[in-house]
Design a protein around this nucleic acid. Structure first.
Length: 228
DNA sequence: CCCTGATTCGC
DNA sequence: GCGAATCAGG
């Protein structure tokens, strides 16, 4: 008879962290996406993202908060280490929403270069994604983006606008991760973020740009000439 | 208030 | 090992 499987105990309670999902997490994490953003694209919570990221040993990014951890024996006098009380909820097995993942797949994929579409960039995969697209230099640190959804339309250059961005600091020290064979790869999203078929271009990007020549061409639309 | 990530701790 | 809950800063 058909056995249900000896190891069928694993329900869909947790994210299936396969090599692929992990790779995607690392990719997105490396790209400087927010934990919430990564979680959203992976259909998981930011907690899961950050938790897994730490377990994977991914390089911590500039935390908005201070070091909650002090060196051992660090003036533990007046400052009482307020360990947060374990008043955490005893158990909150909220109902799982299964068909909840497909409720937001309204995003559009990077349409091919349209002949008359000045905005070939992905319709709007994500606010954060849009940010990285608008910013060639994916700064792993000091990412000082005000708000992903509050980017004011920058004024176009008057003329002779050099398409070169100032200071693309590739801070790839190659230490924590980046085995070696992992130079900069084109991070143009292909497919729907969150679907198994989703992946990045991976081609060699132009110097100072996150995209390869092909995608950079469609990613960076030439600013319309401003005539007075 | 919103956002962010880090840490903790129950499962 | 996983992730909700919580904490903490901007």
């Amino acid at each position: 008879m058909g056995q249900t499987g000896p190891d069928a105990g694993q329900r869909n309670r947790y994210m299936d962290w396969t090599d692929e999902t992990i790779a995607r997490l690392r990719e997105l994490w490396s790209q400087g996406l927010s934990t919430a953003e990564i979680g959203r694209q992976l259909s998981i919570t930011k907690n899961a993202v950050v938790g897994k990221a730490h377990r994977l040993g991914l390089p911590p990014r500039p935390s908005p908060i201070r070091n909650r951890k002090v060196k051992d024996g660090e003036t533990p006098s007046t400052e009482t280490p307020r360990r947060k009380p374990p008043t955490r909820k005893p158990a909150a097995p909220k109902a799982e929403a299964s068909a909840d993942l497909l409720a937001e797949k309204t995003e559009a994929k990077p349409a091919a270069a349209k002949t008359d579409a000045p905005k070939p960039a992905p319709a709007k995969p994500s606010p954060a994604l849009e940010s990285i697209m608008a910013s060639p230099p994916p700064r792993p640190v000091a990412a000082k983006v005000d708000s992903p959804a509050r980017v004011a339309p920058v004024a176009p250059e008057p003329r002779v606008p050099p398409p070169v961005r100032p200071a693309p600091p590739p801070r790839f020290t190659a230490s924590i991760d980046r085995p070696a064979r992992r130079g900069p790869s084109c991070c143009w999203p292909i497919g729907d973020p969150g679907t198994p078929g989703f992946h990045f271009c991976g081609a060699t990007p132009l110097p100072g740009k996150p995209y390869c020549a092909e995608h950079a061409a469609i990613a960076y639309v030439k600013i319309r000439d401003r005539r007075d």
